[in-house]
Each structure stands twice: as structure tokens, then as C-alpha cells.
């Protein structure tokens, strides 16, 4: 045998010292992450099997899956589950379509493109709380400017209550989320567009293919990886929505999300057990979604 056996393979001092240093350099981050993320997560999961309440976290008793049974029975929890899914699906779909449109416009060559790109960054830069408040004011049922504009153009006959009305509350939340997050989507997709090989489009143009056909047959298929990644990130983000709903509609029943529900149970009702159970469920739903996405081959995870 000309090949030495694997056991005789001695790693050089360089490799060994580099590996050792790598772990040394990673150690602080790993310690901090397990302290601020790992440990609290485990505690939350533990609380979800207890009757813990905010005033007496120490004197808690194990209650098995009672909290989860309670959630299954609770109409508000079921509503929050439906709301969250509805919100995530609709807003991410709208953001993807609009984001793609904006990305295409930003990718075209025309005067003032730089200004447009700058303008698009503004909604992204505004804190969610601020944008919720700003839109709360724009959507105000009595003094809101949106009602004034729509009345002026005769699109509506009388002022709408938007965020305050049961019918339009969820639509308002989605509207504000789309306004705030579409730019982010557009920028990601724009980056994807700019990575596409320019030759394909030039060839299509030389061949005289209709631009719409080019879009469906060339741009969209080539852009699919970027779209997939952007949609995954946004979906995982939308599933944990909290700030916007908490501020814009104060977590009304029509818009309550799973995150809002969990916090309500934890701190408004002081039911740490039930709140933790809700949080744990949300955590597992998002994990399942992530795993599903990875299985679908959306995320490339190799470390190279």
C-alpha cells in the first residue's frame, strides 16, 4: 500500500494552532450567545410547562401540558394564529410583487435614479414605532389626511375609521407593513438583478423578443434564487410581528398576532406559564417554517 493509513496522518502545528485559536476566538461569542439566547430559551420552554406567574417566578409547579391545552381552547390564541398567518402571507406576497416592480424600475437607466433609490431607503430607515405612529395619524378616523385625499378624489363617500374599525384594522396593518418593508425587498431584489449576466438581456434584445416575454422567460427564472432568499427572510420576520400591531391597533382582537398574544399573557395578565407556552409554540412554528424552507432547498448553508 502506497497510501499511509489515516491514523498516521499528523496534523501540522499550524493547523492545530489555527484550530485552537479559532475556538478561542469563538469562545466569547458562544458564551454570550448561550447566555442571552440559549439559556432564556430553555427557561421559557420550562416555564411553559409550569404555572408560573409574574409575581412568583420562584414558586412554580410543573403542570405538564395544561398550558398548551388551554391555548388550544382559547379563541383569542386561535385568532392570533390565524391573524399572524394571514398577515404574513398577504404582506409578504404584496411586498414581493411591489418590491420586484420597484427593483425593475430602479434597475432601468434614467435620470434621477439616484434620487429614487434614496427615497426608497427612507421608509426602511424610519423606526417601526415611528412609522406606526405616523400612519396612525395619517389614517386617523376624524383628522386623517388619507380620508381627506380619498374624499377629494371621490374614491370614498365618507371618512373610514381604518385602524380603529374591525373590518379595516388588518388591512391598515398590512398597508403600513408593506409601506415600511417593500423598500428592503426591492433593494435585495435589485442587488440580485444587478448580478444577472447582462449578455442574456442583450441577446434577447438583439433577437427582438418582447420585453414582457423577456421578463417572464429570462429575468424571473434567473432571479428566482434572490427572490426565494428574500421571501424566506421576510416570512420569518413577518411571523414574529409585534411592534407595528402593538402600536397601530393596540393589539385589537382583529389584528392580534402570536407575539402580541404571548406578551399580553406574560405581562398584562401575568400568566407566565401560558405566555411562555404561546411563545414556545411560536418558536416551534418558526423553526418548522425554517426547516421547511431549508428542506425545500432555498437556503444554501455551506460554509464556503
Amino acid at each position: 500500500m502506497s497510501h499511509p493509513s489515516q491514523s498516521s496522518y499528523n496534523k501540522s502545528q499550524l493547523t492545530r494552532s489555527r484550530t485552537r485559536d479559532a475556538w478561542l476566538f469563538l469562545l466569547p461569542t458562544l458564551v454570550v450567545l448561550s447566555l442571552v439566547a440559549g439559556w432564556p430559551l430553555l427557561r421559557t420552554i420550562w416555564f411553559s410547562f409550569t404555572d408560573a406567574s409574574l409575581s412568583s417566578l420562584e414558586a412554580t409547579q410543573f403542570v405538564g401540558i395544561d398550558n398548551f391545552m388551554y391555548l388550544l381552547d382559547d379563541a383569542t390564541w386561535r385568532q392570533s394564529f390565524k391573524n399572524t398567518l394571514f398577515f404574513a402571507v398577504i404582506s409578504v406576497s404584496l411586498e414581493t410583487v411591489l418590491g420586484l416592480l420597484i427593483a425593475l424600475v430602479l434597475n432601468a437607466h434614467f435620470k434621477g435614479r439616484g434620487w429614487l433609490r434614496t427615497a426608497v431607503l427612507i421608509p426602511w430607515a424610519i423606526p417601526t414605532i415611528v412609522s406606526a405612529k405616523m400612519w396612525g395619524w395619517i389614517l386617523h378616523d376624524v383628522y386623517g389626511v388619507l380620508n381627506e385625499i380619498l374624499l377629494f378624489f371621490h374614491i370614498i363617500k365618507e371618512p373610514l375609521a381604518w385602524a380603529a374599525s374591525p373590518d379595516l384594522a388588518m388591512a391598515s396593518v398590512i398597508l403600513v407593513d408593506v409601506w415600511k418593508t417593500t423598500p428592503f425587498m426591492a433593494l435585495l431584489l435589485l442587488a440580485g438583478l444587478q448580478l444577472l449576466p447582462q449578455e442574456c438581456f442583450e441577446a434577447a434584445r438583439v433577437d427582438g423578443i418582447h420585453p414582457l416575454r423577456v421578463f417572464w422567460r429570462v429575468t424571473l427564472p434567473l432571479l428566482k434564487p434572490s427572490i426565494t432568499v428574500a421571501v424566506i427572510f421576510r416570512t420569518l420576520d413577518a411571523l414574529r410581528v409585534f411592534d407595528l400591531i402593538y402600536v397601530l391597533t393596540s393589539g385589537s382582537l382583529e389584528t392580534i398576532s402570536m407575539s402580541v398574544y404571548a406578551r399580553q399573557q406574560l405581562f398584562d395578565f401575568q400568566n407566565v406559564g401560558i405566555g411562555s407556552a404561546a411563545a414556545t409554540l411560536l418558536f416551534f412554528i418558526i423553526s418548522l417554517a425554517t426547516i421547511g424552507f431549508i428542506m425545500a432547498g432555498g437556503l444554501k448553508q455551506d460554509g464556503r
Binding site: L41, T44, R263, L266, S276, I286, D302
Partner: peptide
Amino acid sequence: GRSALLLSILSISMFPQVAILSGMFEL
């Protein structure tokens, strides 16, 4: 274990803040 570590770090940045709220409150 590098890829696994990278993946777990990415997933920590993805997980819902509310999931660690009660544990963090206690801590």
C-alpha cells in the same frame, strides 16, 4: 462543526424575540 455553528448563529438571528421574553425577564 463550522457550518453547523454558522447555521445556528443565523437561526438565532431569525428566532422570535418573544420566545425568550420570559426567560430573559427572569435573567
